[in-house]
Amino acid sequence: MCIGFPGKIISIDKDNYAIIDISGTKREVCLDIVDEPVQIGDYVITHAGFAIHKIDVELAREKLAMLKELIENEIY
């Protein structure tokens, strides 16, 4: 039940609801419980009609690159 989906914010209305794009599917979500300021273009994780987390894009990219490197170089 705790399933969540990452999506990109396309628009935000005056009631603090956003339209987000989840791999091509558009959904409306409430932004009332994200704990950081968000704007159009940001990625958020959504759950049951609410955005619950703003994805730190840089951090995600770095982590993935690091993992790739670890695997390619067999550091461990």
Partner: peptide
């Protein structure tokens, strides 16, 4: 109202609204 900490805030905020 069913769910763990992921879902409960969405219910709490609905109550607040």
């Amino acid at each position: 109202g069913i769910g763990f900490e992921t879902t409960t805030p969405t219910v709490a905020v609905t109550v607040e609204i």
